[in-house]
Simulated scan of single mutants.
Amino acid sequence: MATLTIRNLDSQVEELLRVRAARNGRSIEAEAHAILTEMVGPSPREMRNLAEAIGHRFAPLDGVELELHPPVAIEQQRDRAYEIMKRRYNALRELAR
């Protein structure tokens, strides 16, 4: 890994960095590292897919464990959506009478 030295940093910027680091429970060095990594990492436009973008967003949190939703067949989703729309349509027809 490389070492980076920043000379003549404005004291107000240093103070803001110190406060931000404290809020995030990090050292000033760790906060600067997180900021640089986030800013020079791939932009959302450079991401190939949503999963990659989400992974990049949560990487500073050391990942997130999610429960997998049980697979649902597309036909079941379509049928459920159709039933909901049918009920709404019928309810609107009743109101129109």
Rank of each mutant, 00 (worst) to 15 (best):
G63L: 03
A53G: 05
N49E: 00
N49W: 00
E52I: 02
L66A: 10
E46Q: 12
H56G: 11
P42V: 13
V40G: 05
P42Q: 11
A53H: 02
E31A: 10
A53W: 08
E38L: 13
G41A: 14
P44A: 01
R26S: 06
R48W: 00
N24W: 06
V40C: 12
N24P: 00
M39A: 15
L61D: 02
M47C: 15
R48A: 09
H33N: 12
E46S: 07
L66P: 06
E67L: 12
M47R: 03
A51T: 08
L68F: 02
P60W: 01
T37S: 15
P60V: 06
R45M: 05
V64S: 03
V40S: 12
A30H: 04
H56Q: 15
H56M: 14
P60I: 04
A32D: 03
L66R: 08
N49Q: 00
M39F: 14
P44Y: 04
E52L: 02
I54L: 07
E31H: 07
V64D: 01
D62C: 09
G41P: 06
L66Q: 03
G55I: 02
V40H: 11
S27H: 03
H33D: 10
G41E: 07
D62Y: 05
F58D: 01
A34T: 11
R57S: 10
E67S: 13
S43I: 07
G41I: 06
E29F: 02
M47A: 11
S43L: 13
L66K: 05
I54E: 01
I35L: 15
I28E: 12
D62R: 10
H33M: 11
A51L: 01
N24D: 10
T37A: 15
R48M: 01
G63N: 02
G25W: 01
A30P: 05
I54V: 12
A32G: 07
E67Y: 04
V40W: 10
E31Y: 06
T37K: 14
L68D: 03
L50H: 06
E65L: 14
